[in-house]
């Protein structure tokens, strides 16, 4: 854990999210906004997992109880931008690193050799491999954004917290004579957080006490997925429901019971 803390201390800024699961309706506006912003190609066969690319997915959670005690929740899952990224340590060509101020785990497509070690190492299934070249039907390619390059077959890709927006925000701050390393809250927001109609996704600098995320992440109801494996995700979740928080870890059944009893 001390190593983890050391990694965090390397960054003055640590961009992160707090996703309030109790506010998520599962509408998937975040998914669409992400796809449009990051030039993820649409597919007419969404159930063909070899042809679908996602940077953020919305999982449906259930408490597993019968009616009328059944409860349901939705969990949007972007890249966790781990403090200790297991993907980065296994990459043989340094295509994915965590070395930039802000703590965003990068993905450098031209360096990627498609070995997919990072996919195997990522405990969150946040990475996808391009088995095929991306295809936009004629005309739809006119909606490509200039912000993110199109990835060819043979490379791995993942959510970057809309890193280009970070760059744009810094450029804007410089142009305004402001310090690009002290961006105001909401000066930089990923597309998914911007789109969310219930405000379930809150984004900001986890190290900045003036940003909401820094307080929300410290809430007693805040949690991270698979926290105990020590990846130190920069994506936090929030729920007042015990069963939701319990599902955040793949504990043994008896462990869950112990937690419930306590």
């Amino acid at each position: 854990m001390s190593e983890t803390m050391q990694i965090h201390s390397e960054f003055e800024i640590r961009w992160g999210m707090v996703i309030d699961i109790d506010k998520c309706t599962g509408c998937a506006a975040c998914v669409v906004a992400c796809q449009a912003e990051n030039n993820i190609p649409p597919t007419p066969e969404p159930f063909d997992r070899l042809r679908t690319v996602y940077w953020i997915m919305v999982y449906e959670l259930s408490n597993g109880k019968p009616f009328p005690h059944a409860d349901r929740a939705y969990l949007p899952r972007p890249c966790m931008q781990c403090g200790n990224p297991t993907c980065a340590t296994v990459c043989p060509v340094v295509a994915t690193t965590k070395d930039e101020e802000g703590g965003i785990v990068s993905q450098i497509y031209p360096r990627c050799i498609g070995c997919r070690y990072c996919m195997a190492a990522c405990p969150y299934h946040a990475r996808v491999f391009n088995w095929h070249d991306p295809v936009w039907p004629e005309g739809l390619d006119k909606t490509l954004t200039p912000f993110v390059s199109v990835r060819p077959r043979g490379v791995v890709e993942k959510c970057t917290f809309c890193h280009h927006r970070f760059q744009q925000a810094k450029e804007k701050a410089r142009a305004q004579g402001l310090n690009p390393n002290h961006l105001a809250e909401d000066a930089y927001i990923p597309a998914c957080a911007e789109a969310c109609p219930t405000g379930a996704i809150v984004f900001g600098d986890l190290n900045n006490p003036r940003h909401r995320v820094s307080k929300l992440a410290k809430s007693p109801n805040a949690f991270r997925i698979l926290e105990r494996i020590g990846t130190e995700p920069q994506v936090y979740y929030h729920s007042t429901r015990d069963w939701v928080r319990l599902q955040a870890d793949n504990s043994l059944q008896r462990e869950k019971e112990k937690v419930k009893q306590s």
Binding site: A36, T143, A195, P197, G199
Partner: peptide
């Protein structure tokens, strides 16, 4: 290329639904 909610509109308040977020692609 993309659509987003309009914070200055009283029926959006900055939010957007998935259909509208995908509306630009329907142009083509």
């Amino acid at each position: 290329i993309t659509a987003a909610g309009n914070p200055n509109h009283p029926l959006s308040l900055g939010g957007i639904d998935p259909l509208t977020a995908a509306s630009v692609q329907l142009l083509h």
